[in-house]
Design a protein around this nucleic acid. Sequence first.
DNA 1: GGGATTTGACCACCA
DNA 2: GTGGTGGTCAAATCC
Length: 135
Amino acid sequence: MNPGVKIFPTATAARAGASMEGEEEEVETREEHDSGTARLVLPEDGYEWRKYGQKYIQNIRKWRSYFRCQKQNCMAKKRVEWSTSGEADDVRVVYDGMHNHSQGPSNRKQYDLLSQVLRDQSTSSSSSSSSFPLS
DNA sequence: GGGATTTGACCACCA
DNA sequence: GTGGTGGTCAAATCC
Ligand SMILES: [Zn+2]
């Protein structure tokens, strides 16, 4: 899909396969343990998403993760934004596109989320905002 | 082996 | 015409 050239910087290098940790800032969904600090509630809509990218947006100074629906006929995309400074857990979830398949089982969590979204759209209160612009 | 996830790089669009 | 951002893909890695 990528015509042109295929540069390969990491061709014969990087291997060792040992020690790769140190400082990783992954989107830990779920509360870690009883620590009273890790409270990142990833909005689980009940669908399966496959992460295909993660980048830092300078515009808002926040990290953005890109997810795509796993269904073939489904062109739905999910975009998750979160900040890493301090402890302000501001998780913003933006859904793009629509699903071609029915939403398996019912999810009461989504209802709760929808309620919140409808309640306040952009308030500074650790929450998730969802938006579905075009079809 | 398959599937999922990660990181980096390239590309397209806009100022 | 160049620079920059945002967005996507591709390869590699891990389970
Ligand atoms: Zn879907």
